[in-house]
Write a protein that binds this DNA or RNA. Structure first.
Lengths: 224, 224
DNA sequence: GCAATATTATGACCCACGGTCAGAAGCGGG
DNA sequence: CCCGCTTCTGACCGTGGGTCATAATATTGC
């Protein structure tokens, strides 16, 4: 009786192996990304070599180029994961039930803490922004990064709009401009914080410095 | 009568040539710096090669290493000139007769404008801050840069102190922290501005964005 | 099972660049 | 004019990103 059980027409062998191949390919890709992530985190972009990554992924150098167009693309690919995480976090906060000020502070500090805990993601974004990296990078990647940035700034701008509507903030505050300024204040301080372990230009505690920065920006935007 | 005119005992020939040698040496050094500055400005740090610089200075590559320990030192040396200029400018402003708010704004905008007009100086400072550059750099250079930074921040912190004393600013504003925050807000926005030529993440005019940033920080520090 | 074929992996090789150094070139003193 | 000292040079080295002919492996057809 079981003989004729062919309710589900099984797709041809060719397609089955095809799909397995694809999974395996993605798996390899993931392996490479993980190896690279660890090394970039540990040693930084410049000092990590393609051979290092290949060795860590138990592959030869040439193979890496079957999965990524080069070191930069591999690097930027890693960024995007970070963006996804922080984007989710900010969306989560912006969907929650806090009052506006708490929400703003939470967003600011979530971003800061994420960057402090995932320094390499942060460094990568800074690299992406300020280096010649963009030149020889696939447009698609550049677009992705820009897209995420726009998205992050959007949450803040929306929040500012709400703040103005509710009468908390002054009417002459420009939401997108405020978002950009807050974002760059955070990155500017982060830049410093990540080097400052060694150099000690700034005394005092870091978390407090970020809090103060947020207070200043907020204070400047609030009605008297 | 003129025969015995040896009022000024002329130093021995040896010393004369010695001193000329020294001047020539400094001249060569200057030539190299100027060549390098132009190229760094034009093409950025990574894409400028030592051979490029040597060619522009009409020297061979090896000669550069007689005047500088390497590419990094050459790079950082160029920074220091920039620091000197902006330091002088800020000192000038802080010694002038403006009211405190105007003075603060002038300092902020002077810094911003200097960086926008001398992008390479700015990029260099950022590189110095965030890259692995420091590791293999003479301590003396690192100290110089730190020293200038401290000096710049000092002008701002002093101004804030005056502002508090005069009753304009709140007592709970921490002068050094405010200085750091203002500084990093400016650099964060500058970082963006210098890339933004191409990428257009931010709409609107730049000078205005910097003004807004200053207003926010000032507003946050002022008494209600 | 086995050859023919397609897919994936490899590492020797190329080139660019920062840095070195033995020897060349130039200058000054005697 | 020659010796010695300073300054300069460019061939050379090591490193590291990227390429590609070839090898290894898997898949398909018979």
């Amino acid at each position: 009786m079981a003989v004729y059980q062919k309710q589900k027409a099984r797709p041809p062998i060719k397609e089955i192996t095809q799909s397995r191949r694809e999974r395996e390919r993605l798996q390899r890709r993931e392996t490479i990304i993980n190896a690279a992530k660890e090394l970039f985190y540990e040693k930084g972009y410049q000092t990590t070599t393609m051979v290092d990554i290949a060795a860590a992924a138990e592959l030869s150098k040439g193979t890496l180029y079957l999965y990524f167009s080069g070191k930069d693309e591999l690097y930027i690919t890693i960024i995007l994961e970070g963006f996804k995480i922080i984007d989710d976090r900010l969306r989560e906060i912006s969907a929650s039930e806090m009052d506006l000020v708490t929400m703003g502070r939470s967003m600011f500090m979530a971003f800061v803490e994420f960057c402090l805990c995932n320094r390499e993601y942060f460094r990568v974004t800074q690299y992406f922004l300020s280096e010649t990296a963009r030149r020889n990078l696939p447009d698609e990647l550049v677009d992705s990064v820009s897209g995420y940035t726009t998205s992050l700034l959007g949450y803040v701008a929306d929040l500012v709009r709400d703040g103005i509507k509710s009468g908390l903030l002054r009417e002459d505050v420009d939401p997108p401009a405020f978002a950009v300024i807050a974002w760059r204040t955070a990155t500017g301080l982060l830049d410093l914080a990540l080097v400052n372990d060694a150099s000690g230009l700034v005394g005092g505690e870091y978390p407090e410095l970020f809090e103060r920065a947020f207070d200043l920006l907020l204070g400047g935007a609030m009605k008297k």
